[in-house]
Amino acid sequence: MADKAGDLFGSPTASAVDDFHDVDERSFFAEQTTRDSNIAKAASARATMQPEAHYLGHRERLRNRFREGGETALADYEVLELLLFRLIPRRDTKPIAKALLARFQTLGGVLGAPPALLQEVKGVGETVALDLKLIASVAQRMLKSELREKQVLSSWSAVIDYCHAAMAYETTEQFRILFLDKRNVLIADEIQGRGTVDHTPVYPREVVKRALELSATAIILVHNHPSGDPTPSRADIDMTRTIVETAKPLGITVHDHIIIGKDGHASLKGLRLI
């Protein structure tokens, strides 16, 4: 009876002690496993965060330099980095910015490049390529807005800037016409033809017909040379003179024919070729 009472109210039996030890050991190893798992997760998180912390600090320094000194405080690749920060939020964008400039030479070249070529640069996917093209379109529209409600001939540098932004980096030829009213204010800006790397078909009668439809009294012809050299060809000169001769009897003046290249432009009027 004493033994039984002891089992009930006194010291625990051997079986009870063994059960207690089993529970205690299971709890210990479970806690140890949990601690090890938490340590591993923390180490993994630190390993993941370290590179991010590095480029986040770099980004903040660049932002501060831009905030304090404007765009003149930054190199071209750094300006492109700032742009890419928002397009590629979780990567170091410096190598991508440098690779883009190495491939396309200038910021204008990067923004003017076709999306397919942009995606050939490591780190640039379809979304980033389209975002860069959107930014280029915003820049073009901003420049075009400078021509609205203004006499184009008195804003000639704005005309050149706009045409250069719109056409200099195209990989095929485009033929564009700026239609003006009697005050030489821009009525319309239209691409009349797209061609190959060195030729665009132009039909003088269609050019004049469109000018009459828009009630334009003057036009400026513009096309690009994808080779980069804006020097007019013999075909450029002959085509321009044909348009001048076709338009003149109908009271439409051809103010100029501008040829756009990556490194500059040529004016047929300035060269006294028309």
Rank of each mutant, 00 (worst) to 15 (best):
D3T: 05
G6M: 09
D7I: 07
V17P: 02
H21A: 08
D22V: 15
V23H: 13
F28W: 12
F28C: 09
F29H: 09
A30N: 07
Q32K: 15
R35S: 10
N38F: 11
N38R: 14
A40E: 14
A40R: 15
K41Q: 11
A42Y: 12
A42N: 11
A45N: 06
T48A: 12
E60N: 09
R61M: 07
N64L: 13
E78Y: 01
V79M: 06
L82A: 10
R86Y: 12
I88M: 12
I88P: 04
P89Q: 06
P89S: 02
R90A: 10
R90N: 12
T93Y: 07
K94T: 11
L100W: 00
F104L: 07
G109D: 04
A113E: 00
P115V: 02
A116K: 07
L118A: 00
V121G: 04
I135Q: 03
A136T: 10
S137F: 09
A139E: 09
M142F: 12
S145W: 05
Q151N: 15
W156L: 13
A158S: 14
V159T: 06
Y162P: 02
C163E: 11
H164L: 08
A165H: 10
A166N: 13
L178G: 00
F179L: 12
K182I: 15
N184I: 10
L186D: 01
Q192N: 10
Q192P: 03
H199N: 13
P201R: 13
P204K: 02
E206Q: 05
R210Y: 00
A211L: 13
L212G: 10
S215G: 09
H225P: 01
H225A: 00
P226H: 05
P226M: 03
T231E: 13
I237L: 14
T242A: 10
I243E: 01
V244C: 02
E245C: 13
K248V: 12
L250E: 08
T253S: 05
T253N: 02
H257Y: 08
I260Y: 00
D263W: 10
G264S: 02
G264R: 02
A266Y: 04
L271F: 00
R272T: 09
L273P: 00
